[in-house]
């Protein structure tokens, strides 16, 4: 471990790592990095490297934890033994238990848990490399992973810390500032500015807290932009990929299957309309082709609900 620096802020008002007082470290986010998780995210916050996975909504084990009116949210923060200078003993400890608790509480109200009664939403965050501010980095990653899992949320949660070094308030502490600074205050915030996580240790006057909270909120807003952009980029990329796929034969098969079903069993009026629309969309708008058949499907179901649909299904089985 390095020794305490003599000064944290140089004569130009810059910090030891060259940042300005109100400047956060670089945030890099990659969405959807794990194939098996329902949602996932790799995030770097300065030298912190964390990876988050979300599973669910899924069945609750053990069953007695299940809630009849809403989903339960579980959050596991775990530090890899190699993530810190002196090897960390693997497994949960008091610190990680507390972090898991407050992080879960920072996220839970943002999730529409009432949509998924009797189920569990599990969030796992692994800290691969720790360099001050792992709980904020983990929360930022978890929030993006939740969105990637398609879990309906009121908003993304963004987290960032502020602290005090050399009697000066700084945002997003680095390792030395964290180890030898006078205060450390991690916060998490919703897009509308409500604080969902707040912890503090050290020494601060109430006035310093007031100013610091504003600085950290600005930090959170910057993190939020990166989170949002990462998610949008990810879905733009996915959309691009599906658009490419629509030109491949596999989707054509799906379309022709539908045509077949329609032409064989459904009344002629719907059949003609469907054929027409699908045919047009193939020629003119390959990118939105995905959306149109789905809409048609829904219409079909509504149409068929009265008397035709059951027949269709029966016939299908006999074939």
């Amino acid at each position: 471990m390095s020794d305490k620096p003599e000064k944290f802020i140089d004569e130009n008002g810059l910090r030891l790592d060259g940042r300005k007082l109100d400047q956060i470290r670089d945030v890099n986010i990659e969405v959807g990095v794990l194939a098996r998780a329902d949602g996932s995210c790799y995030l770097e916050f300065g030298n912190n490297k964390v990876i988050a996975a979300v599973y669910g909504p899924r069945e609750v084990h053990p069953r007695h934890q299940q809630e009849s009116t809403r989903a339960i949210v579980r959050y596991k923060y775990n530090m890899a033994s190699f993530s810190v200078e002196d090897r960390k003993r693997p497994g949960p400890d008091r610190r990680s238990t507390e972090i898991s608790k407050v992080s879960r509480e920072a996220l839970e109200d943002q999730v529409f848990t009432e949509y998924f009664p009797k189920s569990a939403i599990d969030i796992f965050v692994e800290v691969l490399q720790a360099d001050a501010g792992t709980r904020t980095a983990a929360l930022n990653a978890a929030s993006v992973a939740l969105a990637d899992a398609g879990i309906p949320m009121r908003g993304l949660v963004s987290a960032c810390a502020f602290g005090k070094v050399d009697d000066t308030l700084v945002v997003d502490l680095n390792k030395d500032e964290d180890n030898y600074g006078q205060a450390d205050v991690p916060i998490a915030m919703t897009p509308d500015g409500k604080i969902t996580l707040l912890q503090m240790d050290g020494h601060l006057t109430p006035e310093e807290l007031k100013t610091g909270l504003e600085m950290a909120q600005e930090g959170c807003r910057q993190v939020y932009e990166v989170q949002r952009q990462a998610l949008m980029d990810h879905y733009a990329k996915m959309q691009g990929e599906t658009a490419e796929e629509t030109e491949a034969p596999s989707v054509e098969d799906v379309v022709s299957d539908e045509e077949k079903v329609a032409s064989e069993d459904v009344s002629t009026v719907t059949e003609e309309v469907e054929e027409k629309v699908i045919g047009e969309s193939v020629k003119e708008e390959p990118e939105v082709k995905e959306a149109i058949p789905i809409e048609e499907d829904e219409e079909n179901e509504v149409d068929g609900e009265t008397d035709e649909e059951p027949d269709v299904e029966e016939d299908d089985f006999h074939e």
Partner: peptide, 13 residues
């Protein structure tokens, strides 16, 4: 001066 703080529970402030 403040020496420590902790928010606990699901809501926001």
């Amino acid at each position: 001066a403040i020496a420590g703080m902790q928010k606990s529970g699901n809501g926001s402030l």
